[in-house]
Simulated assay, not measured.
Amino acid sequence: MHHPAAMNHPPSFSPLSLSDQATHWKMIAVLVGTIVLAVSSRIEVPMYPVPVTMQTFAVTMIGALYGWRLGGITVLTWLGEAAMGAPVLAGGAGGLAHFAGPTGGYLASFPIIAALTGFLAEKGWNGGRVWLAFLAMSLANVLCLLIGASWLATFTGVEKAIVLGVTPFLIGAVLKSALGAVILRQWTRYKAV
């Protein structure tokens, strides 16, 4: 027999259970998330015009762990820091010019893909279902590449945008999605113990 309170409170989609936390803990989570995003931006393989970084991995993980609302807010806060000139983007860059340059579409996609991953995680595409978690992160990565390449095409043309802004990132997208799904699965198992 189920306890009545348990029936009204479904299990959390995330091992962090941030949706159940007080506002000050959510604010701390946003701060920690922006730090994680800034650090992930420093892990890069320089390429032109778009470097390979761990940003998309961090963005999708924050979405999956924080949920669509808090994940989106965290990524928007990080982008706000970047717009104000904080050195939180790839290679320690910051400033509004990056939002208008070749990488602007990828930056614009980040809150969208965090929200998408978070939304799907809340619907059960999380560590409890590793293949669905992988699919959620893969969809988010593909969406990032499509939005980013669409913007990049205004600078390079469509063919070059695909060659420079999509193709080199496909294997990385699959690997980052797999890594994210495995981490979510292990974290969910650990939390359940």
Rank of each mutant, 00 (worst) to 15 (best):
Q55A: 12
T167E: 02
K26D: 07
F119N: 00
G80Q: 14
P168W: 04
A38E: 07
F110K: 12
G85C: 11
V166R: 01
V142I: 15
V142Y: 07
G128V: 08
S40M: 07
A90M: 02
Y106P: 04
H3I: 00
G118K: 11
G180N: 04
K176I: 02
A90K: 00
W125F: 14
A5H: 06
P102H: 03
T188N: 14
W68C: 09
I62G: 08
A153Q: 01
Q21D: 10
M1S: 06
L96D: 02
L152A: 02
L132W: 14
M137H: 11
L170E: 12
H9C: 05
F169W: 07
I28F: 10
A58R: 13
G94H: 14
L107R: 05
G94Y: 14
P87K: 12
A82W: 08
S150T: 12
H2R: 05
G148C: 09
A86W: 10
G85I: 10
I28A: 13
Y106T: 03
L76N: 03
W125R: 05
V193I: 08
R129L: 09
W125E: 04
V32Y: 00
G94D: 15
T23C: 07
G157Q: 05
V36A: 11
R42Q: 12
G172F: 03
R42W: 03
Q55H: 13
H9P: 00
L37P: 10
G124I: 11
P168D: 03
V130K: 10
W25E: 08
H3K: 02
K123R: 15
L164S: 02
A181W: 09
V39M: 14
F110M: 15
K160N: 05
T156Y: 04
L70D: 03
W151K: 01
L18W: 04
A114S: 15
A114N: 13
V75K: 11
A153C: 00
T154S: 02
A136V: 01
H98F: 15
M137I: 03
A38V: 05
A115E: 09
G92D: 14
V52A: 06
T74H: 14
G104T: 09
F119R: 04
G67F: 04
K176P: 01
L143T: 05
H98R: 07
L135N: 11
M84W: 10
W131K: 09
Y190D: 11
V32H: 00
F57T: 13
N8T: 04
Y190M: 11
Q55I: 10
A93I: 00
R185I: 10
